[in-house]
Design a protein around this nucleic acid. Structure first.
Length: 594
RNA sequence: CGGGGCGUAGCGCAGCCUGGUAGCGCACACGGUUCGGGACCGUGGGGUCGGAGGUUCGAAUCCUCUCGCCCCGACCA
């Protein structure tokens, strides 16, 4: 393709709405445009890179034996009601939904568990038809609270989603492993440094799940890694080894009710300072409204050490609830008679018909000689013992583990070490769904003993646009994008520096020869000054550049150079095809001039 | 959803406070000189000032409403 015949416009300045480097460079290199918040158009160049991403994913998925399908994006509400996700997704505001002319409701699919499960249950009756893995590469819609960072969080985006079906857990485990391996190959081909972390399965549901994370400061997820190297988890999922306890070795002293004045001090840190202690000796009592699977709503008081924070992603599961949301101050006032800061576990009043359950975070399990809110303004109880004073209460329901891991906390993994927090971009997520959807939607087969069993499902997502953006986040420099060869819109560019007939002729020939040799080559044949071409070429980030100019030709050479290392070499024109082909085969990191 | 900011030519911005014929840089067109790292000179084209309403002799500018976009935050008792 010749530039003079292309739709390709680069920008000298960064459009004002681009914050992160991948977004800026995709704009400046003329690969992408914004249509609305979180909704982007790909230009021919942008789409070439995206299509290469698509091809890589398709190749690797096919190589695992997965089969491509095409599931509708417009999906009837009934399917989503059946799985139980309609209300939840609508309430969370994440689901784009609309009505047809007859008032029938539809969703624009954010994911396709329902559609694929429906496809399978219509056609599968026996264990003999299993296992298989179905995938598709299609646009997804999510009405994100806050779309941002270009392709990193959009409202319309391209995702590969795969769904495996097995008769039992063993088969699912095998599919999960295969997908894990395929994802590793995919990200390696994109020259991405990634980390695999344990993840919460969130709204999708299921048992085990892991995320493929590209470590980057611009990432939206907080990740926790052990410095001993054997632990990685999303902070939403991360746990720690038991923390050192400030009361270790102390005798339990008698409870002194309402003996500690904390006037106007509503935070643990301030209270601790006032009481001459540390916030790790203050009990933080958080009141949540929880919805249980049986449809009942209750209140839960969750006690945690004052220097820790509750992880609200872990919380619902730990409490056996579907949702847990912080109770309003109005409810707080009714059950405790006080305001946030002075609520405590002792003498809480039931609110209307809502019973209160009491949970204690592991950090306080052995807590003694500590302070907790006295349920009156500006007052705390002193010398509280959790076992003696809290766990003995009828409302006490158990010890849970709901603390958020902090930088420097001890690692829970065998090698020990300390936890470190980094940021990452989630590019892939693999789940063992188990029978969550197959049970809800009656996707069953007869097993070998003629028993009907729900299928064991896995689901495997991979964000394509996001992966391309992540690749740019990790592969760029001051001049522009430094594409990994497999994702570059073109692997190679030929630039002609002058308009003299013999120079043009030589450049044309090299371009035609490369094309004929099957090289993915672009030709900058514009009537522009050399400087302009070099800047544009660096910005777009072609892995290899062939420069044809009068000075070189006078010496009988052209210049071939790599984008990444900026290694340049003078080559006789008739050797260009060979050097380019071999350099590309080696990833264009160095020039194969030998 | 809460807070803040911004919408003026394709892109980046000034003008608004203090109302009086809409400007700068880049890009674009034409002519000339240049030509291996975003050239220079000259000439020129292009804007419903996001939209609606209001105040005024007169509104990009003041007021009201509205739409869009960007950033931060979303309760830790």
């Amino acid at each position: 393709m010749r530039w003079s015949q292309s739709f390709l416009v680069t920008l000298r300045e960064v459009p004002g709405d681009a914050e992160v480097v991948s977004h800026q460079l995709l704009y400046r290199a003329g690969m992408m445009q914004k249509l609305a918040a979180g909704i982007y158009s790909f230009t021919p160049f942008g789409f070439r890179s995206l299509r290469k991403m698509i091809d890589i994913v398709r190749e690797e998925m096919d190589a695992t034996g997965a089969m491509e399908v095409d599931l509708p994006i417009l999906q009837p509400k009934e399917l989503w009601v059946e799985s139980g996700r309609w209300d939840r997704y609508v309430n969370d505001g994440i689901l784009f939904h609309l009505e047809d002319r007859k008032g029938g409701e539809f969703a624009l699919a954010p994911t396709a568990e329902e559609a694929v499960t429906d496809m399978v249950r219509r056609s599968v009756t026996s264990w003999r038809q299993l296992p298989f893995n179905l995938y598709q590469i299609r646009t997804k819609f999510r009405d994100e609270i806050r779309p941002r960072f270009g392709l990193l969080r959009g409202r319309e985006f391209l995702m590969k989603d795969a769904y495996s079906f097995d008769v039992d857990q063993k088969g699912l485990d095998l599919h999960y492993k295969k997908m894990d391996a395929a994802y590793r190959r995919i990200f390696e081909r994109c020259n991405l440094e990634y980390a695999l972390v344990d993840a919460d399965s969130g709204a999708i549901g299921g048992s085990a799940s892991q995320e493929f994370m590209v470590v980057a400061d611009t990432g939206e997820d907080a990740l926790v890694f052990s410095d001993a190297g054997d632990y990685g988890a999303n902070v939403e999922k991360a746990t720690t080894a038991p923390l050192p306890e400030p009361w270790a070795g102390e005798e339990e002293r008698p409870l002194k009710k309402a003996s500690a004045p904390t006037p106007g001090l509503t935070t643990c840190v301030d209270q601790a300072k006032h009481l001459g202690t540390t916030s790790s000796r203050i009990v933080k009592t958080m009141i949540y409204e929880i919805d249980r699977a049986d449809g009942e709503t209750r209140l839960a008081a969750v006690l945690i050490r004052g220097d820790l924070e509750i992880n609200e992603v872990k919380l619902p599961k730990a409490l056996g609830a579907l949702h847990a949301k912080l109770a309003s101050e109005e409810i707080l006032r009714k059950i405790s008679g006080t305001v946030p800061g002075f609520v405590g576990p002792l003498d809480l009043l039931p609110f209307k018909e809502l019973p209160i359950f009491l949970f204690v975070d592991r950090s306080l399990e052995d807590g003694r000689n500590i302070w907790c809110g006295a349920n009156q303004d500006g007052t705390h109880h002193a010398q509280v013992s959790i076992k003696r004073d809290v766990m003995s209460l009828p409302a006490f329901k158990g010890v849970v583990e709901v603390a958020t891991a902090r930088d420097g906390d001890p690692s829970p993994a065998p090698k020990g070490g300390l936890l470190r927090i980094k940021r990452g971009i989630e590019v892939g997520h693999i789940f063992k769904l188990g029978t969550k959807y197959s049970e809800a939607m009656k996707c069953e087969v007869a097993d070998q003993s003629q028993k009907m069993v729900p299928l064991a499902m896995g689901c495997y997502g991979l964000g394509l646009g996001r992966t391309v953006a992540a690749a740019i986040e990790q592969n760029h420099d001051d001049l522009g994008i430094v594409w990994p060869v497999p994702l570059a819109p073109f692997a190679c560019v030929v630039a002609v520096l002058q308009r003299d007939a013999h120079v043009l002729e030589a450049a044309d020939r090299i371009y035609e020869d490369l094309k004929a040799a099957g090289v993915d080559v672009f030709y900058d044949d514009r009537d522009e000054r050399p400087g302009v071409k070099f800047k544009d070429i660096d910005l777009i980030g072609f892995p290899l550049r062939v420069v044809v100019g009068g000075k070189g030709l006078a010496k009988g050479v052209v210049e071939v150079s790599t984008r990444r290392e900026k290694k340049a070499s003078e080559i006789a024109p008739d050797r260009v095809v060979d050097v380019v082909k071999r350099s590309l085969a080696a990833g264009a990191k160095t020039l194969a001039t030998g």
